[in-house]
Design a protein around this nucleic acid. Structure first.
Length: 517
RNA sequence: CGGGAUGUAGCGCAGUCCGGUUAGCGCGCUCGGUUCGGGACCGAGAAGUCGGAGGUUCAAAUCCUCUCAUCCCGACCA
């Protein structure tokens, strides 16, 4: 009889990972598995829509809380507008219609009737169909037109937290779903300059939020004509690099000029007593940020969360064999758990999870590793004896643990949380820098973005800083050949003479090319 | 909407080509016990309209027709 041994060929031996496949093996599948393992969300019965589960929703609530505070500080106030937009409102801005028409859910009836076959059929057809908002410029514009009469009413700074619907063909949890949650700011200004200032100020806030809270370094820049928001004059964005070296647009801010003011008739009497159209802006971030968070930091053992955005910070895991040990260990675990009450780091309140479930200690450990909790505090009989505990950080190897004396455990953990926040940002920044290269010449450019194995493309490419003539023909050509687009024209790019990487025509500056989500 | 594939227990799958016991397996779940400092083990158990409707047949997860849904690849996107 054949004896099969557990011993593997030492060459192929590798540490077991909590997530399979690994990032290197199949990044797209890894992403799905991280979400499942961390229990963030799941696909619902409704096509293209997700159910956001408590651990995932708590992340969104933290995003909301911190951003909302920043909006308030800059003078914005929250309001709420209808989810339904009359079709006629929507039609007012031509480019806007063109951009969104293909992905709108339309409400045409107001009730259901017995269809005579044991089912129901829509009845009470509406005289005018409603569109479920894909964005709210037009419906908010209708209100703004009434609210704004004088330069004294300006600036008008409004934000709305809402759900929106965009009927997408292909969906991925958090990155692109039919319904998603977001925040949309809408502001009205007296002058072009003031509206532009506002547009850029909010982009700054997004960039700061991404770096300081999500620990995701972002590049601020302007979208090309082809990539901008339908109806906007200029669209600005923050772009982040994911671990598969693709770009993820993580937030946008639009200078709308007077386009929507004209469409919605937002007029005011200026200081000279003349009527003029106002200048408007809009800006938003969405639950997509959670997708960014996952793909920027997580590893082959599951989610990694920057402490400031984590729903909970410390898992306390008692380890014991019998009742006597259980009692002793739990006494210490509870007192430590208690000691964290009302503590904070970086202005963020600390939450703990005392996990006393009837599972093996390693099972409980891995549970929290996969959920991305920043710190794990293990407390066993040996710790009770030595009046210390073992502390493990999620941003380090799963076996790396450190013994910490009980009296200093709170201080140690709080300091470590702060340190982790910076370390995670630093790691993401190093990754992006290592994968951002200046590329000149068409051959080098094409080589950079072409996988070595076309059957099963490996993780390749990155951000290419290359010259572009500014022509949409070149942009299209590159998109067609390589699925690579101009992610943005970065603000910090220095003017520099060069040749377009596609057509060789003179170019004034480098832009960021990348594959994107 | 075009091209490809798949629907069998909570999840992942085998069985379908070539119809024939009571539809299996792994994980998970429940109960009991031994365990517990890196994903434990033993024993027992529960759980399935085989996506749906119709047909062929003595007999259908298996063959035929229709239908619904999902996934992947394209066109679109925060």
């Amino acid at each position: 009889m054949l004896q099969t041994t557990k011993k593997e060929d030492p060459m192929s031996k590798k540490e077991r990972t909590a997530i399979e496949p690994t990032r290197a093996e199949n990044y797209a599948e890894w992403y799905q598995q991280v979400i499942r393992a961390a229990d963030l969300a799941e696909n619902s019965e409704v096509r293209g829509c997700m159910v956001i589960k408590p651990w995932g929703y708590a992340i969104w609530e933290n995003i909301q809380r911190f951003l909302d505070e920043m909006f308030r500080e800059t003078g914005h106030r929250n309001a709420y507008f209808p989810i339904f937009i009359p079709k006629s409102y929507f039609e007012k801005e031509a480019e806007h219609v063109e951009g969104f028409a293909k992905e709108c859910a339309v409400v045409t009836h107001s009730k259901l009737e017995d269809d005579g076959k044991g089912g129901l059929k829509p009845a009470g057809e509406l005289t005018e169909p409603y569109i479920v908002r894909p964005t709210s410029e037009t419906i908010i514009g209708a209100s703004f037109a009434k609210w704004v009469n004088s330069y004294r009413d300006l600036p008008l700074l409004i934000n709305q937290w809402a759900n929106i619907v965009r009927w997408e063909m292909r969906t991925r949890l958090f990155l692109r779903t039919t319904e998603f949650l977001w925040q949309e700011g809408h502001t009205v200004h007296e002058s072009q300059a003031e509206a532009m200032d506002e547009t850029l100020k909010m982009l700054d806030i997004y960039a700061r939020f991404a770096q300081d809270y999500l620990a995701i370094p972002v590049i601020k820049g302007e979208k090309t004509e082809g990539e901008k928001f339908p109806g906007a004059v200029n669209t600005y964005c923050i772009e982040a690099m994911m671990q598969d070296k693709k770009a993820l647009q993580s937030g946008t801010s639009h200078f709308l000029g007077q386009n929507f003011a004209q469409a919605s008739n937002i007029r005011f009497q200026n200081r000279e007593g003349e009527f003029q159209h106002a200048w408007t802006t809009s800006w938003g971030v969405s639950t997509r940020l959670i997708g960014a968070l996952i793909m920027a930091h997580s590893d082959d053992n599951g989610l990694v969360l920057p402490p400031k955005i984590a729903p909970s910070h410390i898992a306390i895991i008692p380890i014991y064999r019998d009742e006597a040990e259980h009692a002793a260990v739990m006494a210490l675990a509870k007192s430590i758990n208690e000691a964290f009450k009302h503590t904070e780091f970086e202005g963020v309140r600390v939450y703990t999870e005392l996990d006393d479930r009837d599972l093996t200690s390693s099972e409980r450990n891995w549970y929290w590793i996969k959920k991305g909790i920043p710190l794990r505090v293990e407390i066993g009989p040996r710790d009770v004896a030595s009046n210390s505990v073992m502390v493990a950080r999620r941003d380090q190897g799963s076996r790396e643990k450190r013994s910490v004396a009980v009296e200093s455990v709170v201080e140690h953990c709080l300091q470590t949380l702060s340190a982790m926040q910076l370390n995670i940002l630093e790691q993401a920044l190093l990754f992006r820098e290592a994968n951002t290269v200046k590329i000149d010449g068409k051959d080098a450019f094409y080589a950079f973005f072409t996988p070595k194995n076309s059957q099963q493309p490996e993780i390749h490419g990155g951000f290419a800083l290359s010259h572009w003539c500014g022509g949409s023909a070149c942009e299209e050509k590159i998109k067609e050949d390589l699925k690579v687009t101009v992610r943005c024209i970065p603000f910090d790019s220095e003017p520099e003479q060069g040749k377009c990487v596609c057509c060789g025509q003179p170019s004034e500056r480098r832009v960021i090319f990348a594959k994107s989500y």
